[in-house]
Design a protein around this nucleic acid. Sequence first.
DNA 1: CTCGGGCATAAGCTGGAGTTATGAGCGACC
DNA 2: GGTCGCTCATAACTCCAGCTTATGCCCGAG
Lengths: 313, 313
Amino acid sequence: MSDRDRGLAPVERSAGLAHRVPDLGALELLLAVARLGSLGRAAQSLGITQPAASSRIRSMERQLGVALVDRSPRGSSLTDAGALVTDWARRIVEAAEAFDVGAQALRDRRDSRLRVAASMTIAEYLLPGWLIALRAERPDTAVSLLAGNSTVVAERLLADEADLGFVEGPTVPAGLDAAVIAHDHLIVVTAPDHPWARRRKPLDAAELASTPLILREKGSGTRQVLEGALGGLARPLIELSSTTAVKSSALSGAGPAVLSELALGEELSARRLVRIPVEGIRLRRALRAVWPTGHRPAGPARDLLSLTRGPAT
Amino acid sequence: MSDRDRGLAPVERSAGLAHRVPDLGALELLLAVARLGSLGRAAQSLGITQPAASSRIRSMERQLGVALVDRSPRGSSLTDAGALVTDWARRIVEAAEAFDVGAQALRDRRDSRLRVAASMTIAEYLLPGWLIALRAERPDTAVSLLAGNSTVVAERLLADEADLGFVEGPTVPAGLDAAVIAHDHLIVVTAPDHPWARRRKPLDAAELASTPLILREKGSGTRQVLEGALGGLARPLIELSSTTAVKSSALSGAGPAVLSELALGEELSARRLVRIPVEGIRLRRALRAVWPTGHRPAGPARDLLSLTRGPAT
DNA sequence: CTCGGGCATAAGCTGGAGTTATGAGCGACC
DNA sequence: GGTCGCTCATAACTCCAGCTTATGCCCGAG
């Protein structure tokens, strides 16, 4: 746990991100202004009055110390700095939308119409995006979400307490039909100052197996896939109980880590972590949609399923 | 513009994401509770009192309709739902951190010690991450940021109004030394219900050149790279003036788009957009750090440069 | 049995964000 | 040139979310 602590807070924050970043309402307002070209219309689109919007944008500019919008009697447009800030803001708002749909699904546990049961990795990283897309097509579908391992997912489906499930790993629980919807690739990453980050040649299996790695605990999905690919061998440097903890340790430079590419977005593109190519072994596992044998998904479940696979068939 | 509007708001929001998602302070608090295992310690770490934390977590639970933490006289730990929510929250907080360092750099324009000039794409998608890493190593470095095209970046550097620059594209402005720090790959994407999403075979250059695409305007960096790779041919379906607008149009299903992989994170992994493989042409451009000829980066500029390349040399 | 860490409750204060009402700048149009 | 219409800014007031301090309950450890 203490490793996780250090990993998550490598630098002492001057206590209060919230005081330096505008709140979600202000960010949404800024995006609306960028989109609609006027404070008044932006205000209207958010259901507040124009003076409220004006004051809020102004206080955001004061907080950031930068002018964000050019006001004129003919409308408002973003300044150069405003355009930059708006794109950063969009990232936050998109993350908030994912949070929202996830939370919505969680909240509607009792009285919902589409009940989804999913493994942790899928529930964390993929489902929010799918549900955003689903909401775009079927805005009035209430979705509930339960997260658990394959066994739990299977139980819920068979007890008719869920309509559609998602599991990861090589096997399909008994009594369920399945369709592979994607593959989750496990990748090897290090902090950018690790010697591996400067290698020219890809790693091979023997090298990977002989190096102590930051791993999930024995029995976890990712660990199983890795040990399967390596023929049972895997040397843990540290064993941690969540994907996030593994990521944090890798970020803090503890060593090479193996984790799902789904968990790594910005860390790779911003080079806070570096992907180390591996050759000769296939580090991937199938992600499957599952449902009780015979009960082909219909209605909202079918809609969601088709979203995860591409075109509706 | 109206295309952009539709792209950004394909579904009518029930006005007020901010009312359904806890504010940043609450999310930070939740992360602190997860990390520290106690409301009191979490409160302390954020500089507030224990009752404030208690009440805030409680109101967040009320808002979400789900219990997030198990309280006991021996501390607090996350419930299953809490763990899920915490991971979604982490995404938001990380986006907010990127916003914060970017804004900080923008704010310190006047009196800063490390002055960076960068192209829009780099300033939007990469610099915040690098600056987070830089702050971890050199917490007291004040960074300023100016965003503009290659010409602007060169001017600033040569006028000694910037210490380090970042540009994208095939050429290095005169009077500057450069080092390639990464390559930005352009990729072809469509919405998942586009016929291309079901292809088995990769696209070839002729096919790409003969299909109308959603593109940036003529003269933009990505457009130049594409036309270079295709030998001057590119059929625009729509021309838009920002990467974000291109992404939005693609998301709304207007057609295939070509854009930087940097701009696509969650959209690909959540299959809201699908990457279409292309063979036979190289759609990439170099990202370069630049500085006035002879003035090798030193001090903070050197630190930042080394972060973008990996190990400090 | 008492102490201490951890959480909950109560009462009071404050500031931020909202509202309505009003004014001022500027282009369009008759 | 007046007048409309759209824009944004300012002022005065209300209200509530979140903070604080003070206090009490619970429960395990010594």
